[in-house]
Computed example of a mutant assay.
Amino acid sequence: MANPSRNVVPKSGRPKTVTLEDVAKHAGVGTMTASRAIKGTGYVAAATKEKVLRSADALNYTTNFAARSLATGKTGIIAVMCGPLNELHHVNVVHLLETEINKSGYQMRLLHTKTDLKEIMHATRATSADGVLAYGVQDLSDEFEFLNSKLLQHCVFIDTYEHPGADYVRIDLRGAVEEAVTLMLSSGRPRIAYAGYSNGVSYQEGSAVEDRLITFVASMQRAGREIEYINAWRDLPYTGRIQALRRYFEENGCPGGILCLHDEIATLIYRALRDCGRRIPEDTLLVGCDGLPFMECYDPPLSVVAQPMAEVCATAWQFLKARMADSRIPLQQKTFEAPLIVRESLNFD
């Protein structure tokens, strides 16, 4: 067999567009087999799939999504709507979803705002999306324009609360958060605080709208304890946030335990406490809430409410594929319970 070339130039002097048929011929398989191998659909032996993908790479083959749209009515594009990528848990979710999407032969289009979503809703067929995966997007399922768009029929929500009337995968954090607060309360330390994002500098009665804070407040109230809220200042750069947290601890003293909205906040709290000469866990117990791998790399390793995002993202993608295949199937809804992983930062014996 001749050596594969990435730059096939016919006599006309114009580069030749590599087709699926070219890939199939190069790999020595049928066109349907090559199509299944590249899309990740149907059964293809592992060795055959590897051979097809090597041929596609050798020929510099890329799927023509506009042509696919005209031929099949599908774009091969999945829109992923997520929060800001300067927050590490969002980056992790996008990575996991993109991995699942690409394995099935689709491409991901990342949407940063609801305006991006509206552009998708009003796009032509060739530039639209076959489905949407929405992570932590508040109130999207209640918006009139989205409710009346075809995309809602092919949308799966990933969230910490339910989306009645839609496909969703939910992460239930309540049990693990309550367990973490109970452990911190059992240490006998007088001050247990919650660190999150807020427009204010203190907790306002009835202002909790997120499961972690709601569960924290309920646990503290049952124990007859005051609610201490620490603002982690989302809009400041990292150095500014650490300085603001350090000032808080210098002016108010350090709580005996802190539950954090995210692992990233726990990281900032960790640094601010260390700057103030506080020891973890001897002086302050510390718990994050994501379960990102680097949390066990600290000294001491940090405890976390571990969101099972790999399983969550894989399930959400399976739900969306099933919905795209048949929009008439019953609602698909599943809840994963997040466990509390207790490490040295919660050890107060």
Rank of each mutant, 00 (worst) to 15 (best):
M1G: 13
S5F: 00
V8R: 14
V9F: 04
V9T: 08
P10K: 05
P15I: 01
T17M: 03
T17V: 11
T17H: 12
T17G: 05
L20Q: 05
V29F: 07
M32I: 12
T33F: 10
I38E: 11
K39M: 11
T41E: 14
T48M: 02
S55M: 07
D57G: 08
D57W: 00
L59E: 03
N60I: 03
N60V: 07
N60R: 13
T63K: 10
K74G: 00
I77S: 12
V80E: 12
C82N: 09
G83Y: 06
P84D: 12
N86K: 07
N92T: 11
V94S: 04
H95W: 07
L96K: 11
I101A: 07
G105Q: 04
H112N: 06
L117R: 07
L117S: 04
K118G: 07
E119A: 12
A123H: 03
T127K: 14
D130I: 15
V132I: 15
L133M: 13
Y135S: 14
Y135E: 06
Y135F: 14
Y135V: 15
G136K: 11
Q138S: 10
L140R: 06
D142C: 03
F144K: 10
E145H: 03
L147I: 13
N148H: 15
L151A: 02
Q153T: 11
C155R: 08
I158T: 06
T160W: 03
E162L: 05
P164V: 00
P164M: 02
D167T: 02
Y168K: 05
V169I: 15
R170S: 08
R170Q: 15
I171K: 08
G175D: 15
A176E: 09
E178S: 10
V181R: 03
T182Y: 01
R189H: 04
P190T: 01
Y197K: 00
Y197V: 12
V201L: 08
Y203A: 01
V209T: 14
V209P: 00
V209D: 06
E210W: 04
L213V: 04
I214V: 15
S219V: 08
S219F: 01
I230Y: 06
N231F: 04
A232V: 00
L236I: 03
Y238T: 03
Q243F: 03
L245C: 03
C254S: 15
C254F: 12
P255A: 09
G256C: 01
L268E: 11
I269C: 05
Y270S: 06
C276R: 07
C276T: 14
C276H: 11
I280T: 10
I280A: 11
P281C: 11
D283Q: 04
D283A: 02
D283K: 05
V287H: 04
D290W: 05
P293R: 01
M295T: 08
C297F: 12
C297G: 04
P300G: 09
L302F: 02
V305P: 08
V305E: 06
Q307H: 12
A314E: 14
T315C: 14
W317F: 15
K321W: 01
A322V: 00
R323N: 02
D326L: 01
D326V: 00
S327Q: 11
S327T: 13
P330M: 09
L331E: 10
K334M: 13
T335C: 11
A338K: 01
